[in-house]
Design a protein around this nucleic acid. Structure first.
Lengths: 246, 246
DNA sequence: CACCAACCCCCTAAATTTGGGGGGGTGAGT
DNA sequence: ACTCACCCCCCCAAATTTAGGGGGTTGGTG
């Protein structure tokens, strides 16, 4: 829908982008192609890693990256906070910047040379991994929003490419994380909340037998011998997300 | 054991340190007191947080912090890798720096002005939270190791203080994370591995009834109504650590 | 000294899960 | 036309968990 011919025009660009060996090179190429100042790819939820650390690739200046990390700005930054929850792209200006902490954060960002115009593209892939891609600029908001109007689909495609590259970078071609069906995830999630099969059946409006079937198949897909193990593994893999139940 | 009188001498210093309002101030104070170049506090395992991010406080230069984050050095750095596994403090020089990646990492660190002498203090608290505290210097290794010989106990005390401050900073005074007994954690961990009560009894050399009792008490401590929920919560809280089973 | 938590052991009836099996139906992709 | 993933429903016997009880020792702390 929209502007397919525009996307076609850029086919070669996207093809070249996909072939680049490194995400940082991709970021550079995107910046120069679209005259964007900063591009950031941020994958949350490193499943299975022993030590918490996000997968971040960016051309933000080093002091801002450092500042962001050592001040736990990810807990404050409205872009990250809503980016990992919402599904649709949006302009930074559409987010809620009203809290005091947000204002302080914004000021600090400006001090570090980060403009206030930006475009946020959230990603949720088939395996329920979530990432955000940000395109930032020091252009005036009015100019920026017009620009985004024109190239939003292209930037979304760029975001997808970055995500695919990140996943290959992290997990190689064979991706261990099983793709459970929505129903299977719902059932596991409710089980992890302490509900039994019959309650879950009532909640989801299906029979308790069906709930058991979903648990069974989920367990098999996860390669587990007991449901306890399945719950553990699903939790580790971040397949279970209690937040998604309202 | 060792030098209790040395610790007594520093009572006032530790007292002052504890009263500082901010971890960064603590780090400064420690640096000037002991003539240390860099101090880093690094807490892994942010339980319950929506987005992966470590709690890091350091006076390393910003470009090194940024470089460390955006290159996933935590996956390579032998200090972090073994620091989150081992129990006892050690000199950086005692770690395994033989792999190619370690060498590259070390060189990059030196380029950013980080010396090769350091002292690593791992922390595991009552609630199984793990952190590492690093004291770094550009002094020659021979001089550094003599110095550490003298002040290792003091630095360990500093590390403890930093950890307490971090926990208060993160969770306030009331800490939600329940302290399960070692046996309870063992049983939960084995359940999460897919073992049933009788197998676990054999593994741990206790009766299966006892195993069930531990599961029961763990479940209650976690405030859960089913074992599935308990496994989920324990996994989220990082109480279950399969690595600890050999 | 008492007290408490951690550790250890055992029992039973009732409820639940498990692991098999058996049916359907849809929609997407080949 | 076919397969495959997803969605939905059901049955049953065997195994397991659950939620109550009942014991006990040890070691540390007020």
């Amino acid at each position: 829908m929209g502007t397919p011919e525009l996307t076609d025009e850029y086919d070669r660009f996207f093809d070249e982008l996909s072939r680049l060996p490194d995400i940082n090179l991709c970021i550079e190429k995107i910046c120069s192609e679209f005259k964007i100042q900063f591009v950031t790819y941020h994958l949350a939820f490193h499943e299975g890693k022993a030590i918490d650390s996000p997968y971040v690739r960016t051309n933000y200046p080093a002091d801002w990256v450092s500042q962001y990390l050592t001040n736990d700005y990810v807990e404050i930054d409205p872009v990250a906070q809503s980016g990992f929850k919402r599904a649709l792209p949006c302009l930074w200006s559409d987010l809620d910047w009203s809290s005091d902490k947000s204002v302080d954060f914004k000021n600090d960002a400006q001090k570090h040379g980060i403009g206030t115009s930006g475009y946020l593209v959230p990603i949720t892939d088939r395996r329920r991994r979530r990432a955000i891609v940000n395109f930032a600029s020091s252009a005036k908001e009015s100019i920026w929003s017009h620009k985004i109007n024109d190239i939003s689909l292209l930037l979304q495609e760029c975001a997808e490419i970055l995500h695919r590259k990140a996943i290959v970078d992290l997990y190689g071609t064979d991706d261990e994380k099983p793709a459970l069906s929505p129903r299977e995830i719902q059932c596991l999630t409710w089980v992890a909340q302490g509900k039994d099969a019959s309650s879950i059946g009532l909640i989801l409006g299906i029979s308790e037998h069906t709930v058991r079937d979903y648990c069974k198949s989920a367990k098999h897909k996860l390669g587990c011998s007991t449901m306890y193990q399945a719950i553990h593994k699903a939790t580790m893999l971040r397949l279970i997300d209690p937040d998604s139940l309202n």
